[in-house]
Computed example of a mutant assay.
Amino acid sequence: MAQPKRKQSLLQGARVYLSGPMDFVASRDVEKQFGWRNRVSEFLQVMGVTVFDPWFKPDVRGLHEYGREDQKSGDRIRTRWTYAGGRKGAEARSWCAKQFWETLHIDLRMVDTSDFTISYCPTNIYSVGTPHEIIMATLQHKPVLFVSPPIVFPALHELREHLKGDVRGAALLKRLESEIPIKENPRAIPSLWYIPLVGGENFFDGFGFARYRERFKWTEEIPIDRHEKLYPPKRPLLPFVEKLNHRLPKKWDSKLNKFVPDDDWLLWEFNTEKIRGKHVKSVRK
């Protein structure tokens, strides 16, 4: 008797790396425990995707604790860093570079191992590792799904209004905006360098968590929930990924003036069993 045809699941067995700022987020602890990566990971695991999350480094055989990153390890590097000249300064900077090389190495290896990358890149957060990861994935012709949310500061507008009658306070605020600098991006336009690098069809202005919160029991409201309630994404990521699981997306060909197959989406067919994916992390405590 013929077996019923299994519903196609393109992402079954695929691997993804979750890229985005870690060092200069408002709180590393909060981001690690409640950040966007946790939800996106859970969403993808249901589709059978293996998720590489830089907050949780996988163990490396034969190299105990290799690339392990936490607040203390970063603080040790910052404490040791110096601009002093001579032998002592050179030794200190060399030590700092060697210490963080392991983190850089293992994160880039996760990019290298993945089939595609999801990157969250708010234009108000400084980041260096994220562009490096995006460039590496792009050089390997791997898709990068790029989330650039609207950047607005309601508290800034309230403070401006509050200081209207305070000449000195208003001047200090204006100076602070220039020094930081504080730049709003209400249309969620990504940094322009990314546009040709990533490709026009892979940009999103939010995750679209709202429609999935009940299904995944995401009862804890996180800052992104409040943000997306105020500024609903016009092109959310999660519905795109849901469709991607059944049909590969196309890209726009400006020469042919039409959509064509996107051969960056090379997902291996290993005839794997349909099982839940997993969130890769260390087995050591």
Score class of each variant (00 low, 15 high):
R235M: 10
K164L: 13
M1C: 11
S282G: 06
E161T: 08
F146M: 11
T123Q: 11
P21A: 12
L244T: 05
A2T: 12
I195S: 07
F52E: 08
T50N: 09
R93G: 06
S73H: 10
S94W: 10
D70W: 09
Y212V: 01
A97W: 08
R61H: 09
L256G: 09
E177T: 07
V167D: 12
E220C: 12
R235T: 14
A171M: 08
F100E: 13
A97K: 11
R276F: 05
F203R: 04
D59N: 14
I125Q: 06
P223R: 14
V25L: 04
N202P: 00
D205P: 02
I151M: 07
L256T: 04
E214P: 00
I222N: 01
F153D: 14
K183S: 10
P131L: 07
S9A: 09
I189D: 10
V51N: 07
D253G: 04
E31S: 13
A137K: 00
V280R: 06
D107H: 05
M47V: 02
T79R: 14
I134V: 15
G129N: 11
K258T: 14
N257T: 01
H162F: 15
D205Y: 03
K183N: 11
S148H: 02
A171W: 07
K98I: 11
N124C: 13
G89N: 13
P149C: 07
R276T: 09
L145N: 03
V198S: 02
A90V: 06
L11H: 03
R6T: 04
K251W: 01
K32H: 12
L44M: 12
L192S: 14
K281H: 15
G48N: 04
K217Q: 13
R276Y: 08
T50W: 07
V111P: 02
K7E: 13
E161P: 00
E31I: 03
P223C: 12
M47S: 04
E269S: 10
L139S: 07
S19D: 02
R93S: 05
L104G: 00
R213N: 10
R235C: 09
L10A: 05
K5A: 10
M1W: 11
Y17L: 03
N202A: 06
R187G: 01
N271S: 15
D205A: 06
S114E: 00
Y212S: 03
P233G: 03
V30N: 10
E65C: 05
V241Y: 01
I180M: 11
A210S: 14
R87S: 09
D264L: 05
D253C: 09
V51Q: 08
L248E: 03
K98Q: 15
D263Q: 09
N124L: 02
R109I: 06
P58L: 07
S119N: 01
T123G: 08
F116K: 00
Q8H: 03
F209E: 05
I106A: 06
L244N: 02
D166P: 06
S41E: 07
V241E: 03
A137N: 01
F56L: 12
F52L: 14
V198C: 03
P223N: 13
T50M: 15
E184W: 04
A170W: 03
V283E: 14
L176G: 02
H279S: 13
T123P: 02
G165Y: 07
R76D: 15
F270I: 01
I224S: 10
G165W: 06
T138D: 02
S282P: 01
D107I: 05
I189Q: 15
D262W: 07
T130Q: 08
F34A: 11
H162I: 03
D112V: 03
L10Q: 04
K142S: 02
